[in-house]
């Protein structure tokens, strides 16, 4: 057995935490992009697109993220796509994030009063102009706090990628535990690392909610 000092544990965890951060950023950025497309389909007028968006959202919200990871990781190779763990993790987390963000944002778009749609329509704007200049700017302000809040879920969601062998914070914890036989110390430190990542985000989300609420116009 190798002798593990506390510093060894922390150092290895921090190195692995980079991958947690990277995976979170990728999932959040790409998920936001895909989520925006799903949102447009979901609140748009084309029926087939709307149904497609509803189906997408329901499937990804209605199944465990773990199953989604498995399906991507084991499913894509079946159709001949070479699927390393990092790719499967990015893809599954991106789609999962997109579904939740699209649904959060749909709520924000729909809470913009009907009168705003009617006033902009009566001024001869088309659908995209209404969205771009009237509805989205108002929905955006509502959307910021819950979006930042959801990023916490994304960070915690990355832990599941450990199960398909992607070495991020959780997987690294298990590996270090297996080598050091100090599960409580290792997992305690890992939990602390997650907390340090997530707490600023949730605190920020709460602050945004307060300040945007105070600045709420009309």
């Amino acid at each position: 057995m190798i002798d593990f000092t506390a510093w060894d544990i922390v150092r290895n965890l921090l190195l692995a935490a980079r991958w947690t951060v990277a995976l979170s950023l990728v999932a959040f950025a790409l998920g936001g992009l895909v989520g925006l497309l799903v949102l447009f389909a979901r609140v748009g007028r084309a029926k087939p697109l709307r149904w497609g968006a509803v189906a997408f959202i329901e499937v990804f919200q209605g199944t465990p993220l773990l199953m989604q990871l498995f399906l991507v990781f084991f499913g894509l190779p079946l159709v001949g796509v070479d699927t390393p763990a990092w790719f499967a993790a990015c893809l599954a987390l991106t789609l999962w994030t997109a579904a939740f963000l699209a649904e959060i944002w749909r709520g924000c778009v729909e809470s913009v009063p009907k009168g705003q749609w009617e006033a902009s329509a009566s001024l001869a704007m088309n659908y995209l102009q209404q969205m771009r200049h009237v509805v989205l700017p108002q929905a955006l302000r509502l959307a910021v706090p819950p979006t930042v809040g959801f990023s916490v879920q994304v960070v915690k969601g990355t832990a599941l990628a450990s199960i398909i062998g992607f070495v991020e914070l959780s997987k690294a914890s298990t590996m270090i535990t297996n080598a050091s036989f100090q599960p409580f110390t290792v997992y305690g430190a890992a939990a602390a690392a997650y907390f340090l990542l997530c707490f600023p985000l949730s605190a920020w989300s709460r602050r945004l909610e307060r300040t945007l609420h105070v600045a709420h116009r009309n």
């Binding site: 009617e118 009566s122 001024l123 704007m125 108002q138 116009r217």
Partner: peptide
Amino acid sequence: DEEHLRALRLEVGMVFQQFNLFPH
């Protein structure tokens, strides 16, 4: 259809009971 509706709205403006100004 959309085109005709927008053409109509260029000719006919509307003011609502609840103002419906854009708050932002």
